[in-house]
Nucleic acid binder design. Structure first.
Lengths: 167, 167
DNA sequence: TTAAAGTTTCAAAAATAAATGAAAGTTTAT
DNA sequence: ATAAACTTTCATTTATTTTTGAAACTTTAA
């Protein structure tokens, strides 16, 4: 396999993976492209390389910046803006985890708390509902905390130990 | 909030959460419904409760069974089939993690290995590509292993300790 | 057997999500 | 101030994913 082919395959695969995990395909592809580029890329280049429209490129680059995993760069003497990706993978994981937690898990937790707090527990059916949603709330909360804490592992001796044992 | 309203809200929320994480909405909703039901539910009931077609119900129940998180049950003297969800949340998490790893992460790892193994490293650009995809491969592999090992935590004293510390 | 009760399949329709592109908006150099 | 270079927005179009529903299939009881 030659370089260009490999690069393309990587971008496609990363895009597919993204869309299976609820991140839009183009967003993931742009990210992939920036990840493996050794130098900043202009919007024009992104459009060209992925064969997408200006609007699409603009919106998804913006989204990536909102997530904090892509940065704008200015080159001296250049009018255009260039983009680079966060290349430190631990940092990347932290930011993605935080963002998804904030956007999706936290709101879901709120609802779980609400629905598990109804006072009606007259019937067996209702008791089971309250019991099960309460357990779910505790579980999701714990998982969310783990995600958060896991992101602190990298600078943390215990974390390293745990990872070593788990490996 | 009364019971019926709470139940509905829970089903809707679980459905939305599912679709944000790449699991189709109806599949997640059916799962939610079964999770909070204290007794087995027939396909007819699922259709009725979620207002979906027979085909849709059938396909998604099948998918849930393929994931191993919903079971068929037979009631004595009843022709129809009934369904129940895995209600143990640790077990549920294990099965979802295994399934997604198998379906999505493993294939992605295969591609990452391939593209990071191209022998061309003539230019700076190519060297950076190989370097970055190699790191990504290692990272994803490690994350995948963690997911797998994390699923063994529940029966494991060290795991409990770690969770306690992380909490 | 056979027919009733139930389940699955899959081509077509509907719903949803994403992409386009042209117009509006910015910024910068002169 | 203005015009060139570039970016953003968003109504419309396009692509993708999900759902439907009717026909085919399977199972069971008589």
């Amino acid at each position: 396999m030659e370089f260009k082919e490999a690069k393309n395959k990587f971008v496609q695969t990363w895009g597919a993976l993204g869309s299976q995990w609820g991140i839009n395909k183009t967003m993931a592809q742009i990210h992939a492209l920036l990840m493996v580029s050794n130098e900043p890329i202009s919007m024009e280049d992104v459009m060209e390389e992925l064969q997408i429209s200006r609007g699409n490129a603009s919106m998804n680059l913006r989204a990536l910046m909102d997530w904090g995993i892509v940065y704008k760069e200015y080159k001296a003497g250049e009018r255009r803006e260039f983009f680079t990706a966060e290349k430190n993978l631990d940092e990347l994981a932290v930011k993605i985890a935080r963002e998804r937690s904030k956007r999706e898990i936290k709101p879901a937790l709120k609802v779980l708390k609400e629905v598990s707090s109804i006072d009606s527990n007259a019937t067996e059916e209702e008791r089971h509902f309250v019991d099960q949603t309460t357990k779910l709330y505790d579980f999701v909360l714990k998982a969310d905390n783990m995600l958060e804490k896991a992101t602190e592992f990298k600078d943390n001796w215990l974390g390293r130990l745990v990872i070593k044992i788990m490996k």
